[in-house]
Design a protein around this nucleic acid. Sequence first.
DNA 1: GTGTAATAGTTACTTATGTAACTAACAAGG
DNA 2: CCTTGTTAGTTACATAAGTAACTATTACAC
Lengths: 155, 155
Amino acid sequence: MSDSNNFDLQAFLPYLLNQAAEASSLSFQRVYQERYGMLRGEWRVLFHLGIFGQMTARDIGLRGKIHKTKISRAVQKLAEKRFIKRQRNADDRRQETLQLTVSGRAAYLELRKTAEHYQTDLSAEFSAEEFALLQTMLKRLIKPCAQSPQQRPLT
Amino acid sequence: MSDSNNFDLQAFLPYLLNQAAEASSLSFQRVYQERYGMLRGEWRVLFHLGIFGQMTARDIGLRGKIHKTKISRAVQKLAEKRFIKRQRNADDRRQETLQLTVSGRAAYLELRKTAEHYQTDLSAEFSAEEFALLQTMLKRLIKPCAQSPQQRPLT
DNA sequence: GTGTAATAGTTACTTATGTAACTAACAAGG
DNA sequence: CCTTGTTAGTTACATAAGTAACTATTACAC
């Protein structure tokens, strides 16, 4: 066994997950990229603010496990696009409170609708039970592997 | 509904898959990176050659859906490390036949063993049926999204 | 207060990678 | 042959992103 050539790369979970993540991202990516000129980090920050309201960069990083330099850059781009408003916090002047502008909220709602449709399409591949199980299993995979604060390149 | 804040980012499949892919890659990455100084593209090429024997860069790209420039760079690195042997094909002198050297095969076998252990650990989180279903579902997600030949950044 | 440590966020530097342009080799029609 | 088109693989250029160093601010001990 230690020399037989029977390793199944297509069954190796990190590889499989990576391929699935790539494949499942393509269509959605096209929308936020071609329509709003956003990168991955940007839509993620946008969604965090759309969902949770005003947050600091730190909050977003903790919740989304995103490295602070990625957030810093995404925030700059989103501010240039006038999608978010930055306001230094009076209590602690190191922090900045971020929130969506009107057009930022519009972009968020538009992208959220796209995401919902996309999710519907993806889930149509499976039964409701299967899909729910898939989500549960993925969440279980995420938790135990205590993710390092720094984000690393994928396998 | 179009303005309510109930979108669940943690349930959005491209996001979930991405997080799961990242989390599940970390430990394995540590091994191939710290032990062999390899990047993602390199272990993938190494595994293709370990599993399928000699191949051209083109073959690897087709099978693994990896962009040719990534392969070209990975092949260079692996050749520098003396893990693969490159040989111009006599029939068609554009092509190069790649195969593992003895030390390349040793690295492959070592990493494969690591991968197998790692896979075992991951699968221990679930029942055998659940784990098999997870793999099946991921494969189904990969197929329909006809992946573009160029690899794109993840969502 | 004063000094030390910790935190929020930015920037510099290096490396990685996608895109497109390129070289070299083959194929096929004339 | 010679031209046109295609393919295997590499390289150049621009952009993305991780690491570490940095600035500014706060917290805490003394």
